[in-house]
């Protein structure tokens, strides 16, 4: 299976990655190889096999609805590149 340049650019856009033309070309080839490799799974006969999302058999892991302490605000904001009046600050997202 081979990915087109356009598809690679779309995937890069969704992942917010900026690719140079050269990189996009290279990625198209590499991603196609990865997909070919994964496609080997298509050969397995899965008729009558239930889909599963985990390899383990663990299920129903819950916690009770009991509050635990949150972080101090200062600690929560510490890694933020920008903050203002107790908020994280980001470039404006609406006009």
């Amino acid at each position: 299976m081979s990915l087109t340049r356009k598809e690679v650019e779309w995937i890069a856009h969704l992942a917010r990655l900026e690719l140079t033309e050269e990189m996009a070309e290279k990625m198209a080839g590499q991603l196609s190889q990865v997909l070919d490799y994964i496609a080997k799974l298509d050969a397995a006969d899965t008729a009558g096999v239930e889909p599963m999302s985990h390899s383990g058999s663990l299920c129903n892991v819950f916690r009770e609805d009991v509050p635990s302490p949150s972080l101090e605000r200062e600690a929560a904001l510490r890694n933020a590149p920008e903050q203002s009046a107790g908020y994280f600050r980001v470039p404006r997202v609406i006009e």
Binding site: A85, Y87, R89, V90, P91, V93
Partner: peptide, 8 residues
């Protein structure tokens, strides 16, 4: 302030 503020 030309930014957007985020409260999580």
């Amino acid at each position: 302030d030309s930014g957007t503020l985020v409260d999580l």
